[in-house]
């Protein structure tokens, strides 16, 4: 079956009982795959999904049904948290044309980390708006590129029009330790929110 050249898959321990997922999203080129790679215990994998979207955002004057098929590439990684539980991290493209896929991706997700490039924050407006719209719990993580200007948090919060409860974190997506800190702070935030929510 497998040739000598094909890499042996990194299987999960047989004791694992289930998995959770967190999405990593943001505009094109912001560093989603880099962040996933810094956190993942396996080399990031790429899979593709074909998406048929009704052409609601396409003005089609010919009267043909406006259906388009798009292929979306998802890069993802994995962390085995303990012998029973694994965490998957899905790099999720933030462009508007991929939003139809978000509903499926976000179902059952703990939440999303929205990577922001402080040099071009306007590219993140759509993604952040969509996260709010979809009521996906999220934190903003500023990817600190070497030439990233440093803004005070309140300035960034105001520029991104973020609600006070949305955490603003920062890391160099290439740095494993920093990436872990962002992930831990985000889950800590989710935990605090979950505890404080009144039970229905």
């Amino acid at each position: 079956m497998a040739s000598a050249n094909s890499a042996e898959p990194d299987y999960l321990p047989s004791t694992v009982q289930g998995a959770v997922k967190i999405l990593v999203t943001g505009p094109f080129g912001v560093g989603k795959t880099t962040l996933v790679g810094s956190l993942s215990e396996i080399s990031p994998l790429r899979t593709e999904e074909t998406m048929t979207a009704a052409g609601a955002d396409v003005d089609d004057l010919t009267g043909r049904p406006g259906k388009t098929t798009t292929t979306v590439a998802l890069d993802f990684g994995r962390i085995t948290l303990n012998p029973r539980l694994a965490l998957y991290l899905f790099g999720t493209p933030g462009q508007q044309r991929f939003w139809p896929l978000w509903e499926d991706l976000s179902r059952g997700a703990l939440g999303a980390i929205a990577l922001v490039d402080a040099r071009r924050i306007e590219e993140s407006f759509d993604v952040l708006g969509q996260l709010e719209e979809q009521r996906i719990p999220f934190a903003v993580a500023v990817n600190t590129f070497p030439d990233t200007p440093s803004y005070p948090e309140d300035e960034l919060r105001s520029a991104l029009d973020l609600l006070p409860e949305v955490p603003i974190l920062a890391c160099d997506a290439r740095d494993r330790r920093g990436a872990y800190d962002v992930l831990i702070d985000f889950v800590d935030h989710l935990h605090a929110t979950a505890v404080l929510e009144p039970q229905p």
Binding site: V16, Q17, G18, A19, V20, K21, I79, L81, N82, L85, L87, S106, R107, G108, A109, L110, G111, Q134, R135, I136, P137, Y180, L183, I184, V187, D188, L190, H191, T193, A194, V195, E197, P200
Partner: peptide, 29 residues
């Protein structure tokens, strides 16, 4: 094996015990 979180979309339904388990795992790693 189904996902550890049922396919709900409301964050407030996330079980705190599961989030604790995720946190402990991440901090150890």
């Amino acid at each position: 094996l189904p996902p550890a979180v049922p396919p709900v979309r409301q964050a407030e339904r996330l079980p705190a015990t599961l989030l604790e388990e995720v946190l402990v795992g991440l901090r150890q790693l």
